[in-house]
Design a protein around this nucleic acid. Structure first.
Length: 137
DNA sequence: GCCAACGTTGGC
DNA sequence: GCCAACGTTGGC
């Protein structure tokens, strides 16, 4: 069964629009062990929210893992992981961090608990809560 | 192996 | 731009 994730990016480095312009993006440059573990746990077909950090502070779209289990091409030691993603859906209503924090059902998600984690897991029930906030059925 | 100092991330 | 949270480094 597919799992759900949240991918964080600073929009002035790599935004949702950049991903759409490219059609497929490689998620690399992660240098955090917990985030790396999450990357390695991803499988092709898993869905992930695309979150804009520092600017925007909202979930703007949904992408899907198109290649999993890659080695980070930006790292010479070969120790870090990467995946490839393709954009799927732009959210009708972007879900802001403020909304997420105001929602009791989401207070335990990794995004809230560990705000500096760049790749976080989203539980299925949390996924559906966010989807309804986003106006997606 | 502990922990203080330092660097980085990210919300505000 | 500030600072809190977290990760990493390095002295002991």
């Amino acid at each position: 069964m597919a799992r759900y994730w949240l991918l964080k990016s600073e929009p002035f480095k790599y935004s949702w629009d950049d991903l759409n312009a490219e059609g497929e993006g490689t998620w690399d440059g992660v240098r955090n062990h917990r985030a790396k573990n999450n990357l390695q746990a991803m499988e092709v077909g898993d869905q992930a929210f695309f979150y804009h950090s520092r600017e925007g502070l909202e979930i703007v779209g949904i992408c899907e893992v198109s290649e999993a289990g890659l080695t980070d091409p930006t790292d010479e030691t070969g120790k870090w992981a990467a995946v490839k993603v393709v954009p799927k859906t732009k959210l009708p209503n972007p879900v802001t961090l403020k909304q997420i924090k105001a929602e009791p059902a989401l207070e335990d998600c990794e995004l809230v608990r560990q705000s500096r984690l760049s790749v976080a897991e989203i539980k299925p029930e949390e996924w559906s809560v966010i989807m309804s906030l986003a106006g997606v059925n």
